[in-house]
């Protein structure tokens, strides 16, 4: 299989996965009791009307009496046209709720991702180049700390120490400050710090161990024999092959935190982002909103995987397109 075919195959795969997710969501919704119908029935009963009739009315209005395949097609169309329904609890379209929350998630996710991508490989390769010296041990200790400490606990600890005791950083997130202001950057320091320590720990170890293999590779000797400087040997000859296992680890670490820890960190720091939106939609049983938020998280995952695979083919030309 050539590269072009491989790439198209990966894209088809991503589309299929996203279809499966959409279909699964549809089936879950189809077979679970619809709160709107129950509400209508209840209201009708309270108002002395016939609940059965009320239910029929709602069903008819919402197309719930259509055959399953018609409902399914409608659902798929809605998903892909971003017609994700109405959020009862927030009284706005689901997409609006998502966009406004995403704005906050992006504010800490972008610096966090950028910092992780820069720091983890640098620290790992630095550690490998000083393997078994105290500098390596220090970096390793830092990595284990970040890896081992639960993010929400670390977050609370930091808020307590730097927010409450020393009053250096604000305790809760202030949504009224402009996005591009020093104040905003300042209040994002702690959440970003927590997430960066959480995500680079494991990844830094991967970078260290994987690059250690290449540090002593014969091609490093060749590069040295050609008169290439040590820094260039690291940035070109070690980093490039390390990027393959590294990006896998980094992407999964970032994604796991994006879904998991962001919820906790947003709760601790009171950032009204996607994680909080998901939690609140579940608590208040706002079905459309739960579905929409979940779709965002899964799409980020699918697209992230796709991008990662495509980047691989550029990093390591040896990757066989056949056995994947």
């Amino acid at each position: 299989m050539g590269m072009a075919q491989y790439i198209s195959a990966r894209i088809v795969y991503a589309v299929v996965v996203s279809m499966i997710i959409v279909t699964a969501s549809f089936l879950l919704l189809y077979f679970s009791p619809n709160p709107n119908i129950q509400a209508a029935a209840q209201q009708a009963a309270l108002g002395g009307e016939n609940p059965e009739e009320a239910v029929e009315r709602v069903k008819e209005a919402r197309g719930l009496n259509d055959p399953i395949h018609v409902q399914y097609m409608q659902f798929v169309e809605n998903v892909y046209t971003l017609d994700w329904g109405w959020s009862e609890t927030r009284s706005e379209p689901v997409t609006d709720a998502i966009v406004s929350s995403f704005k906050y998630t992006a504010q800490y996710s972008v610096p966090w991702t950028v910092l992780s991508v820069l720091i983890a490989p640098t620290l790992g390769i630095y550690s490998a180049s000083r393997m078994y010296t105290w500098k390596d041990h220090l970096a390793t200790g830092f990595a284990f700390f970040g890896y081992a400490i639960p993010n929400f606990f670390f977050a609370i600890l930091l808020v307590l120490v730097f927010g409450v005791w020393f009053e250096i950083f604000p305790i809760t997130y202030d949504t009224t400050v402009p996005i591009l202001s020093l104040e905003n950057a300042w209040q994002l320091v702690l959440p970003v710090f927590v997430l960066v320590t959480g995500s680079i720990g494991g990844t830094m170890r991967v970078a260290r161990n994987e690059s250690a293999e290449f540090m002593n590779a014969d091609f490093m000797k060749t590069a040295k024999a050609k008169g290439v400087k040590p820094t260039r040997r690291y940035t070109h000859h070690v980093l490039r092959p390390t990027l393959v296992p590294l990006s896998t680890s980094l992407v999964s670490a970032l994604f796991a935190l994006f879904v998991g820890a962001s919820v906790l960190v947003e709760e601790v720091f009171a950032i009204p982002g996607l994680g909080r939106l998901l939690v609140q939609s579940i608590i208040s049983q706002d079905t459309s909103l739960v579905l929409g938020t979940t779709l965002v998280f899964t799409f980020v995952g699918v697209v992230g995987n796709l991008v990662e695979d495509l980047v691989f083919t550029m990093i390591d030309p040896r990757i066989s397109y056949d056995d994947r």
Binding site: A217, D218, F219, K221, T222, A223, K224, A225, K226, G227, H236, H237, R240, P241, I315, D316, P317, R318
Partner: peptide, 20 residues
Amino acid sequence: RGDNIAHIFQNPQEAMNHCY
């Protein structure tokens, strides 16, 4: 190393970087 003395090695497979 760059100008005067060049090296070639036993195992050309390992001596080259597979990523370039």
